[in-house]
């Protein structure tokens, strides 16, 4: 009980801090600082219609690379932690799911996949992007795993996609150093016509890679947990 009381006190203390923040907060009515610059210059500078995408992939491209890395290492970490001991290699056999589910899978799987791909390819134009697309792709994989619990998705394939897309992302970033202003500069390729699919330099390419990577990573993570 004493412990609970102590926890409550700790929580109240932090609540005081939060209260101070909340009571001094007023909704913003105009942009300021760097965001102002992004809104005014961003479209012209990087050629992406979706400003969030510009920020995510280029202005703060290093963050995104880092974010990809976090996901990558959490997948690697999960595989390290959940690695199987050699001697306990028994296969888990689960009852197949119903036919309805399986049929739905065969119809929906490609559609969901396609939707995911659409999202990350159009990331620089519309809401969405690599992560969102990748998540959709992974949901397709999850669906697959749920529907056909005894079939596994090729581990090696996922790993290869994951590795290669990550590596290519880095290579594209380095191209920025060599051919343009700096690491992860998207202006290696021409900016293209504003608002079209082939515009905004490397952004679509990177988003494709991110999408592939996120999709395969989440997929392999799910796979790990399933095992």
């Amino acid at each position: 009980m004493l412990k609970r009381l102590f926890m409550l006190i700790a929580l109240v203390l932090i609540a005081i801090l939060f209260f101070d923040v909340a009571s001094n907060f007023t909704e913003r009515s105009e942009l300021s600082g760097i965001s102002q610059y992004y809104v005014e210059q961003g479209a012209e500078e990087l050629g992406a219609a979706n400003l969030v995408t510009s920020v995510v992939v280029t202005y703060r491209g290093l963050d995104t690379l880092g974010e990809v890395t976090v996901l990558f290492i959490s997948a690697a970490g999960a595989s390290l932690l959940l690695r199987r001991r050699r001697n306990t290699n028994k296969k888990l056999v689960v009852e197949e799911s119903s036919e309805i589910v399986q049929t739905t899978l065969s119809i929906m799987f490609p559609i969901i996949m396609l939707f995911g791909v659409y999202i990350f390819i159009n990331g620089h134009l519309t809401p969405g992007g690599g992560f969102q697309g990748g998540a959709v792709v992974a949901s397709a994989l999850l669906f697959f795993m749920l529907a056909r619990p005894n079939d596994s998705i090729s581990h090696k394939l996922l790993m290869k996609i994951e590795s290669l897309s990550g590596f290519t992302y880095v290579v594209l970033g380095v191209l920025g150093v060599i051919l343009a202003g700096g690491f992860l500069d998207n202006r290696v390729l021409g900016l293209g016509e504003f608002g079209s699919l082939f515009s905004a330099g490397l952004i679509p390419l990177i988003y494709i890679l991110v999408g592939l990577k996120v999709g395969s990573e989440l997929g392999s993570l799910l796979q790990k947990f399933r095992e």
Partner: peptide, 17 residues
Amino acid sequence: DPVPSALVLTAIVIGLG
């Protein structure tokens, strides 16, 4: 402001990891 939107995206993914 596009910046918090961009950052929250990153943060979500990291939270996921």
